[in-house]
Design a protein around this nucleic acid. Sequence first.
RNA 1: GCGGACGUGGCGGAAUUGGCAGACGCGUCGGACUUAGAAUCCGAUGGGAAACCUUGCAAGUUCAAAUCUUGUCGUCCGCACCA
Length: 810
Amino acid sequence: MDVKAVEQKWQARWEKSKLNQFDKKATSKPKHYVLEMFSYPSGAKLHVGHWYNYGPTDSYARFKRMQGYNVFQPMGFDAFGLPAENYAIKTGVHPKDSTEKNIETMEAQLKAMGAMFDWSAEIKTCEEEYYKWTQWMFLALYKKGLAYRKEAPVNWCPSCQTVLANEQVEGGVCERCGTQVTRKNLTQWFFKITDYAEELLKGLDELDWPEKTKNMQRNWISKSTGCEIEFECENGEKIRVFTTRCDTVFGVSYVVLAPEHPLALSLTTAEHIEEVKKYIEYAAKANEIDRLSSTREKTGVFTGSYCTNPVNGKKIPIYLADYVLASYGTGAVMAVPAHDERDYAFASKYQLPIVKVIESQNGDTKLPYCEDGIVVSSIDFDGLVGEEARNAVASHLAKIGKGGKKVNYRLRDWLVSRQRYWGAPIPVIHCPKCGAVPVPEADLPVKLPYDVEFKPNGSSPLANHEKFMHTTCPVCGGEAQRDPDTLDTFVCSSWYYLRYADPHNAAAPFSKEKVNKLLPVDTYVGGAEHACMHLLYARFLTKALRDMGYLDFNEPFLRLVHQGVILGPDGNRMSKSHGNVVSPDEYVEKYGSDAFRLYLMFGFSYTEGGPWNDDGMKAISKFLDRVEKTVLKIKEYKTENGSLYGANEKALDYARNYAISKVARDMETFSFNTAIARMMELLNAIGKYDAFAEKNTSFLKDTVKDFVLLLAPCAPHICEELWEILGEKNSVFLQNFPKENPDALVLDEKEYAVQMNSKIVCKAMLPANGSQDEIQSLALALPEVQERMEGKSLKKCIVVTGRLVNLIVG
RNA sequence: GCGGACGUGGCGGAAUUGGCAGACGCGUCGGACUUAGAAUCCGAUGGGAAACCUUGCAAGUUCAAAUCUUGUCGUCCGCACCA
């Protein structure tokens, strides 16, 4: 078969007949929205990772289609972003030009893959008709009070020359370029994702997502239930601390503020001011180096002030220390050295009192003792344990007006402004009189100008574009400046799956009706690296849009699958420096798109991935050759012996229906490797039956047809061709996926493993549905059993119907 | 440090969820067809001469463990002073 010609033939036919498009009219079929994470138009060509994401998932989509679903599978490009801009800085090619060119080549390649993408719904996030609505999203959130601007210590990547969201910092390092991130106090735009912390956490329980991913999100949101306690200072200021261990409040020996705490300076006495200022400076610098290590030696400084422990009136010194984070809880903690390792280390170093107020229930209390235990030396609360003690203390604090129960989350608000060029401009105007004013919706989009000097200089490239920056205030009409920042590209990708439902709507981001009909996404497939970024942001935006009345569902992605990673043949991650990059093109050229896709499905467990192997590629190609040969041979047979149905036919019928039932199950669970293994078995069974001199050829032909239908989602071009060769007129993808005939799967006898005292003695054909007694007596009658029964008697017999019988003798 | 996942032939990987470990395929070996090779087809293939031994290692529960429990080693990932 001329694979190339066959691929082109069918791709052209599919396009002409609009076979790949979602049927907007069909109402009787249930919809199924299959989505692959859209790609960033980098470099020029699709890499193995793209094929591995899109190929098998497309086979899943085709499978669902043949099962009778109205499948929607769109594709688009996440086109804004840093790489294009960095490339521009290096080469001088404008990001818009390089991006558009890259998209063009990638479109052609994606089409050559033969996936049933509905290109009529294509999205490119860098186009005005799309980013207009990204800006609209920003304004909608702003109006709802979910977008705000504030000065805060933020993450700054010195290499990318922009601020980053918390989620984009991995271990203190920029997620993109690996540069150490520094901290800066800057005024930036944030989305109030924290308003949804609880729902984002709870919603995970309902989702059909990998547990690991759900746990990563849980971990990232990190809910902690505790208590806020107010310590009043001598000068009347009040310090609120957050603690999960209010049962230790009688053991507080000092209070610590983060160096950035707003009260840090006002609480410092004249005597200590020099030292404190020096420490704050030191801490700011230390922040930049590493405040990451928990093994780092604790440092701090005394402010000279004292506050009062609300439960016992004790006078308590106030310290500053950088082991307390300004951004979590209240930025202040009560230190209980006896029952917290960090406080213990600090107190030991600065010779602060260590007061034991918890005792281990088994009597052995070695400090610092950080487990739950019996409260001691705490007046009314003595004798209470753990949660019980915490409840009692919390309600006491509430009663005296000094605090009470409080829930905290580790999740921070999403910082969305970026000091870069290639993104959607933030639709805000800064007026000297009116402050930050949103751009009226009618004026959207705020167009990204083309002629911009985008060499980074620490400020936003747009800031230097006079024409862009200069504008008038929509409120007062006076002279004003545009916001020079652009939106994080994760904002663009946090709603694209909604736009696909209504991609050409010029009046709104999408119609509520269309989105409610097509969403949520039923099956979403993409890399695991987005667990705490894209996948979290998209959930947030969906919930926010729901609360604003734009849609009626709670979660965007009902089911999530992560594909694994294909490594180089040497087992390392593919990279140019390793010299182990496998380029799909050569293989597609040599073996065809179907063979390449099929190898990716068969050679790995889909969610695991693994090292590339050339021999496996050849093996799959051989399998496809055998398929073709078999079909060509059997198609020539005259249909005869239609009523012949003996043991051989029964065996082939079993193989056929066994394959049908297993393939359907395995395709559903993305177990593509085993699905294809079952098809190989069926092909072997077909070959075996074909070797018989006397055979029922019309039955054989039907079986071969079923085989082609089973394989069609995985090898779409070749199976279309074979389907046509078999004399069929309509596309194989308009056929129903075969359904198994349960009768054919019923066997009279099955091979049982016969065990005596749990050791296998022999194997025997016994009634498939025999009763306990029946199987037992048949087993006992077996010669191999009789032999070993001499002088022994049966104590017990275990029968697993259809599989095994275990005779316990003694 | 905390949390999670994983560990099965020479290799990629299966195992109806506690029921014959090693499906399917690669590789290897043998054979057929060939002057020969390539391709193709057929057969064998966890180890061991055998009793038997085998799912990282060591215990345990069970009639029965790759699967459950505990400990231990190793690999990978996530979080990292979160009070």
